[in-house]
Simulated scan of single mutants.
Amino acid sequence: MLRTVRENFSDTVVSSLRTFGRAVGMAQESVVGAVGDLARRELQWREVILQAWRLVTVTTVPAILMAIPFGVIVSIQVGNLIHTLGADSLLGATGGLGVIKQGAPMATGFLLGGAGAAAIAADLGARTIREEIDALHTMGISPVHRLVIPRLVAMVVVAPLLNVLIIFVGVLAGYAVAIGGQGVTPGSYWATFGSFTTTADVWMSLVKALIFGFLVVIIACQRGLEAKGGPRGVADAVNAAVVLSVVSIVCVNLLLTQVTAMFLPTRLA
């Protein structure tokens, strides 16, 4: 019994490492290929625009619906805390920093890792099951250049835009709650928001969203291209893409937060 458990565990670890290696290889090939296609002006802009539009259509409305309650929750919870400390005027700074530094990039990553990853994995998984990927190999066409790179470029473009949208909606929602329910004056809210929120915070938020989008598209493309077993395989690929994307985003966000806290501590603008 113990031997069987040990063998299963070792097989799982080896399989995970091999999967990770293939993902790293696909990421490297995709980045190098995208740069080369841009330099040679061979990038499939029509496919990029189509994929970007698909991502926008499946994430924009959920992003707004997620940003509003998040901004409200941050404003209420932080507002209650600082109210007990007698620092109501700092609500703009704390609420804005919460949305910009953590809320917006995490919400962006989760939306892209949910709706975006599911759409990409389902599309590529269905193509794999229908043997379209094998047909591309037969014709000498690289699936990475034909299918992965346009989705990668689209995701890199959409992720920061989605992050900006969530920041805008989340900050406005927090502002409305602070003014209407917390008794904060508009002037003090925006004054503290501008004093503590720096351009470095906004740029770091955009960089986080960019990294999360990159992780999502690589994981989703790999899971889709490696789907097997018929329609059940497509469903498994979608499920694996979503779960792995969310877990990767959480782990990478923890690492980036620690690095940011060390090198870019919160300070007055």
Score class of each variant (00 low, 15 high):
Val164Gly: 04
Gly181Thr: 15
Ser205Leu: 05
Ala227Phe: 05
Leu244Gly: 10
Arg151Thr: 03
Ser195Gly: 14
Glu132Trp: 11
Thr260Met: 09
Trp203Arg: 06
Gly230Leu: 03
Leu206Ser: 01
Met139Gly: 07
Leu256Tyr: 00
Ile133Pro: 02
Leu136Trp: 05
Val242Thr: 05
Val164Asn: 05
Ser142Phe: 09
Ser245Thr: 04
Arg127Tyr: 07
Ser188Met: 12
Asn239Val: 15
Ile166Thr: 02
Ala176Cys: 11
Ile141Arg: 06
Ile129Thr: 07
Arg223Met: 14
Val158His: 02
Thr257His: 10
His137Cys: 13
Ala237Leu: 03
Ile129Val: 11
Thr138Ser: 15
Arg232Asn: 09
Arg232Leu: 11
Trp203Ile: 06
Phe193Met: 13
Ser248Leu: 05
Val177Arg: 08
Arg130Phe: 07
Thr185Tyr: 15
Met204Pro: 06
Ile249Ser: 05
Leu255Phe: 12
Val246Arg: 07
Met204Lys: 11
Trp203Phe: 13
Ala209Pro: 01
Leu256Ala: 00
Ile129Gln: 09
Tyr175Asn: 09
Leu147Ile: 10
Met155Gln: 03
Asp134Cys: 12
Ile179Thr: 12
Gly233Lys: 06
Val217Asp: 01
Ala209Phe: 01
Ala241Arg: 03
Phe212Gly: 00
Gln222Thr: 08
Pro143Asp: 07
Phe196Asn: 11
Glu131Ser: 08
Ile249Asn: 06
Ala154Phe: 00
Gly229Asp: 08
Gly187Ala: 15
Phe196Glu: 12
Thr257Asn: 11
Ile219Asp: 06
Glu132Ala: 10
Ala240Trp: 10
Leu254Gly: 15
Thr199Pro: 09
Gly224His: 04
Thr260Phe: 09
Pro150Tyr: 07
Ala240Thr: 10
Thr185Gly: 14
Arg127Pro: 02
Phe214Arg: 00
Leu256His: 01
Glu226Cys: 15
Ile218Glu: 03
Leu215Ile: 05
Gln258Trp: 14
Gly183Met: 03
Ala237Gln: 03
Leu225Glu: 04
Ala173Met: 09
Gly224Cys: 03
Leu172Phe: 14
